[in-house]
Amino acid sequence: MKKKLNCILLIEDNEFTNIFNQKLIKNLDIAEQVYVTESGKEGLDFLFNKGKFESNEINYPTPDVIFLDINMPGMNGWEFIDELKEKKDGEPISSKIVMLTTSPNPDDEQTAKLIREIIAFKRKPLTKIVVNEIITEHFPDYV
């Protein structure tokens, strides 16, 4: 039996979408842990154990996949990636990113292709089929 992914991180400002996506992933039973952050800033805090994720007791794992919403208030998906790269300062980003968008804009799709970490550009709502496709394609050794 293949093993599950260790961790999936959701970055999405819409509460309902987060609830639905979390539920969907849990139902699929493909990851040990699914974390939810509600903004780009919170996502970064999660990755670097800062803010509300600063803790001596829990060691937050590095996510295998990040489902990233583009359109968010404050810091959008692209700004999140830029900020992340800046913080990593040349170090490779070990998480793979799946961009999620409500209204697919061809410009965004082009931008996504230029970023190595982005493995997929998907339209919301997320479905089981889409998630399964991503796993089969990018994580053949899992689940």
Binding site: N14, F16, T17, F20, S103, K124, P125, T127
Partner: peptide
């Protein structure tokens, strides 16, 4: 259209749930 779509997405998602 983006802002209209989001609640729609929620509706369809939860309908499917």
């Amino acid at each position: 259209s983006h802002d209209l779509q989001e609640p729609l997405n929620t509706i369809t998602s939860f309908i499917s749930l």
